[in-house]
Simulated scan of single mutants.
Amino acid sequence: MCDIERFDDSLFAILKECRTLPNFFDAVFGFLNRRTDFYVISTNSNSHVGLPEGFAERFVRNTFYKWKPKDLNKNEVPEAVIETEIETEVEIDDETDNNKGIAMKSDDIEGDLRKLNVENDKNVSDSYNGGVFDNYSWSQTISDVDVLIKTPFGVTSKDLIVAIHPNKISIKTKKSSLVLIEDELCNCVKNSEAIWSLDVSQRKLTVHLEKRSEIWWDCLLKSEPKLDLSKMDCSRPFEELPDEAQAKIEELQWNQERKRLGLPTSDEIKMRETLKKAWNAEGSPFVGDFDPSSVNFN
Rank of each mutant, 00 (worst) to 15 (best):
N123S: 02
K204S: 15
S127D: 09
I161W: 12
D199Q: 13
V124D: 14
D126M: 09
S201L: 11
V189Q: 00
D108F: 07
I161A: 11
I164P: 00
L113S: 09
G130F: 08
K190S: 07
T206L: 03
E182M: 15
V179N: 09
R203P: 03
L205H: 05
H165L: 06
S192F: 14
D112K: 11
H208F: 06
N191S: 08
V162N: 01
I142G: 02
K172W: 00
F153Y: 06
W138P: 01
K204P: 06
D199C: 14
I161F: 11
S192H: 15
I149L: 12
K172M: 01
K175L: 11
K204E: 15
D126C: 06
G154I: 11
V207R: 03
E184H: 09
S192R: 06
K172P: 00
Q140N: 03
S170I: 05
V155N: 08
S177Y: 03
S127N: 10
E119C: 11
R212N: 15
C186H: 02
K211S: 05
S125L: 05
F133G: 10
E210P: 01
I161R: 14
P166K: 02
R212M: 15
G154L: 12
L198H: 08
H208M: 02
D183A: 00
D112V: 08
Y128S: 08
V118M: 14
G130P: 04
L185W: 07
D199Y: 09
K158T: 05
W138C: 04
A163V: 05
T141F: 03
V147F: 07
S137H: 03
I164G: 01
N135I: 15
W138F: 07
D134C: 09
K174E: 08
L185K: 05
